[in-house]
Design a binder for these strands. Structure first.
Lengths: 192, 192
DNA sequence: GCACGCGATGGGACCAAGTCTCATCACGTA
DNA sequence: TACGTGATGAGACTTGGTCCCATCGCGTGC
């Protein structure tokens, strides 16, 4: 077979998404993914601990980028301003070239309960990374985890909007607006 | 075997927690759980769709209780006041008699990644139930999901504190304080 | 008292996820 | 040319989870 051809991991990710779109996640076997990528089942599990994990590569990089952006925000920035800077920094990942891919992937993830579950785990890790970064900025603790939760919600909303096939705005624009909307809503929670 | 003895589901839940505490979640087989409960493996999966699910019974009841309490809050109550009422209503589930059980269960869940993942799914469902209940009260949408997220965070913090073996306060007290702390922290997010 | 139906169970075949071990292969280097 | 290294292939094995069918206890009507 195509043994020793380069980019085994990328080939697996590509074959997986392709098959998931064609037949659905549950009707696709790890062995089939490996086969389409020209590899063996054992090699698949050498690259990914999980069948699900093949759709969640680069998540650690995302967490790191987020945390770095929070750490790198101006010293006088409020927690929410730091979150805004971090969301804006995500735009370098969610560029127009990845838009079609993101949309297909998102449809697969949302269509399966196991994958949604895994996504929640990844988002929880992202939230924890944000909270840690905020604590290192000196934000005390109920506020740090609260702000992280808020940031995560803004990110989720922004990503959902951005990945919509009808969307043509830049991620940074969408994210800024979602965060603003959330902050405006905050004021209404104790009033009325 | 103990065929036809009553409360098969409860026996399975009890046997499962017992075995998980003894040998750990991963080292316990679904067949072993069934055996200790005097049942067959196939019967286990007739009562629980999942091996994990055996630790998450009553979750739907919790969601319903939460949603009902939000719906039943006074007409003039703010979203946060409705959340406070709902958290207080949880005290009828988290009573002193269940404290020891809750602590043992929590230790098992926190000790395994698959179980934490499932817990996140359950908490997401709880959050969604809260958001729906708030929307039915007329709370518009970024605010409803934001308040639900906030309520879920308060619930998580309160549950963690309450389930601590050293704790001897009532759930309602712990929950009220956690919610107050979160609301106080909200004010600091845009300031300083 | 008996036949019948219904719901819960046992038993086991079966598939796929995931683990593990060992042999194999390509490539660089001495 | 021999050797070491790292990635791969092949396949056995365990377990989660599904499915089908026979069996059992119990209630009901006759």
């Amino acid at each position: 077979m195509g043994r020793w051809q380069p980019n085994a991991r990328e080939r697996l990710e590509h074959a997986a998404l392709e098959l998931f779109v064609e037949r659905g996640y549950e009707s696709t076997t790890a062995a089939e993914i490996a086969e389409r990528a020209g590899l063996a089942k054992s090699t698949f599990f050498r690259h990914f601990t999980d069948k699900r994990e093949v759709l969640f590569g680069g998540q650690d990089a995302l967490n790191g980028l987020f945390a770095d952006a929070i750490a790198g925000a101006p010293a006088g920035a409020t927690p929410v301003e730091a979150l805004g800077a971090a969301l804006a920094a995500m735009a370098e990942i969610f560029v127009a070239e990845r838009h079609a891919w993101a949309h297909r992937r998102q449809a697969v993830v949302m269509g399966n309960s196991d994958l949604r579950e895994r996504e929640l785990l990844k988002l929880a890790a992202l939230t924890e990374a944000m909270a840690d970064a905020l604590r290192r900025r000196g934000v005390p603790d109920p506020a740090a985890s609260l702000a992280a939760e808020l940031g995560c919600l803004a990110f989720r909303n922004a990503y959902t909007r951005w990945a919509d096939p009808a969307n043509d705005r830049h991620f940074a624009d969408v994210a800024r607006q979602e965060l603003d909307d959330l902050m405006a809503a905050t004021a209404t929670l104790t009033g009325r």
